[in-house]
Simulated assay, not measured.
Amino acid sequence: MKKVLLLLLILGMSTVLFAKGQAELGTEENPIVWSFVPSGDTQEIAAGGEEVADMIYEKTGIVVEASVATEYAGVIEALSSNPPSAHMASLATFAYVVAADRGVAEAELISVRYGRPFYDGQIIAGADTGIKSLADLAGKTFARPDPLSTSGWIIPALTMRANGINPDTDLAEIVDAGGHTGVVTAVYNGDADAGATFVDARSNIQEDNPDVMEKVLVIEVSAPIPNDGVQFHPSVPEEMREKIINALLEIADDEAGNAALNKAYSWTALERHQDDFYDPFRQVLQAAGVDAASLMGE
């Protein structure tokens, strides 16, 4: 009888361990998945992300797996799945607000580019399209990086509406270019009349296309927008989260680490900021009479 009870106890413990997935989070068998979005060259982002993940492991012993998604919505869904298939993310402003409203992301770090934790968006147009102002966008083909891109669609769409252009009905076609570089390329090649990116994404193709600044013109610049950064799923333990945050701050201050962050996302530094850093952007949405869920089509 005792042997039977012991066997049942062992089986019961095995079932519990199996139900919990057995492997501890942050191990080879169950790594922390850090999901990036393709804001630039996917291969460069993946390579830089893997380098940073290796550095985190060297400093903390925590295994992090870098993953590049095809779109913002994919990262949000990965954070929203049960159990989550992503534990860290580097979402742009609007996508983060959507994820935070769902309760699946918590901001901890904000990236710095050109000495600022903010960036500006721009609306660009082909020099030979005749587009000189927002009003000229009516009837034109418009390229965007992603439907959830803050600088590449959310802010430009709100700006167009404020200037009498309904992007849903007044644009001839909306093209999803798969990233900011893709938008510049589409406008440069004439595959789109206009588009929107961060300032100044044109430099991403300037080496191969030295005349891009003359062929692709800026017709509008947005107000400052919070940079992307590092967010965590709420299920990541606080102690583990702090180790990763401190490691990333050290990596950002190290020459090799800074180069890897720059390769991945053009980050030159990281600053600690939490959810309230995004409140001014939320106020922009509220002033426009929209909310994140409605723009997501929810």
Score class of each variant (00 low, 15 high):
residue 247 A to S: 12
residue 283 Q to L: 12
residue 130 G to H: 02
residue 91 L to C: 04
residue 86 A to K: 03
residue 148 L to N: 09
residue 124 I to R: 01
residue 235 S to M: 09
residue 251 I to R: 03
residue 112 V to K: 06
residue 5 L to A: 15
residue 226 P to W: 07
residue 297 G to N: 07
residue 115 G to S: 10
residue 33 V to D: 11
residue 219 I to R: 04
residue 118 F to D: 15
residue 161 R to L: 15
residue 117 P to D: 12
residue 260 A to M: 12
residue 56 I to F: 05
residue 50 E to N: 15
residue 100 A to D: 05
residue 256 A to Q: 00
residue 198 F to W: 15
residue 102 R to K: 08
residue 207 E to L: 15
residue 203 S to I: 15
residue 258 N to G: 14
residue 235 S to R: 10
residue 264 A to D: 13
residue 139 G to C: 05
residue 197 T to E: 00
residue 191 D to K: 04
residue 257 G to R: 00
residue 136 D to K: 08
residue 189 N to E: 09
residue 39 S to C: 10
residue 135 A to K: 10
residue 21 G to N: 05
residue 193 D to I: 06
residue 117 P to T: 12
residue 35 S to W: 12
residue 296 M to I: 10
residue 242 E to G: 04
residue 292 A to I: 00
residue 236 V to T: 04
residue 206 Q to C: 10
residue 36 F to R: 09
residue 268 T to P: 01
residue 69 A to V: 15
residue 246 N to T: 14
residue 132 K to I: 11
residue 217 L to D: 08
residue 249 L to R: 02
residue 15 T to E: 03
residue 56 I to C: 06
residue 90 S to C: 03
residue 277 F to A: 03
residue 141 T to P: 00
residue 190 G to D: 00
residue 171 L to M: 04
residue 198 F to Y: 14
residue 159 T to S: 12
residue 186 A to D: 07
residue 247 A to H: 03
residue 126 G to I: 04
residue 148 L to A: 07
residue 52 V to Y: 13
residue 194 A to E: 05
residue 280 P to M: 06
residue 67 S to Y: 15
residue 211 D to N: 11
residue 286 Q to W: 10
residue 296 M to N: 05
residue 268 T to V: 08
residue 155 I to G: 07
residue 66 A to I: 08
residue 286 Q to R: 15
residue 291 D to H: 08
residue 130 G to W: 09
residue 10 I to Y: 02
residue 93 T to S: 02
residue 212 V to W: 07
residue 281 F to D: 02
residue 33 V to S: 06
residue 182 G to Q: 02
residue 2 K to F: 12
residue 17 L to Y: 15
residue 243 K to H: 12
residue 107 A to E: 09
residue 26 G to V: 00
residue 155 I to W: 11
residue 133 S to N: 05
residue 202 R to K: 03
residue 96 Y to R: 06
residue 10 I to F: 07
residue 221 V to N: 12
residue 7 L to K: 13
residue 144 R to G: 07
residue 259 A to E: 01
residue 277 F to M: 01
residue 234 P to T: 04
residue 112 V to W: 12
residue 65 E to W: 04
residue 167 P to I: 11
residue 71 E to H: 14
residue 138 A to Q: 11
residue 206 Q to T: 11
residue 185 T to K: 08
residue 271 E to G: 05
residue 122 Q to A: 06
residue 19 A to R: 04
residue 248 L to P: 05
residue 110 I to C: 13
residue 210 P to D: 02
residue 167 P to W: 06
residue 14 S to C: 11
residue 192 A to G: 02
residue 231 Q to T: 15
residue 21 G to F: 09
residue 38 P to S: 13
residue 124 I to F: 00
residue 6 L to W: 15
residue 43 Q to P: 01
residue 128 D to E: 14
residue 7 L to G: 15
residue 254 D to Y: 02
residue 175 V to L: 14
residue 209 N to Q: 05
residue 218 V to E: 11
residue 221 V to T: 14
residue 139 G to W: 13
residue 87 H to N: 08
residue 22 Q to P: 00
residue 85 S to F: 10
residue 205 I to F: 04
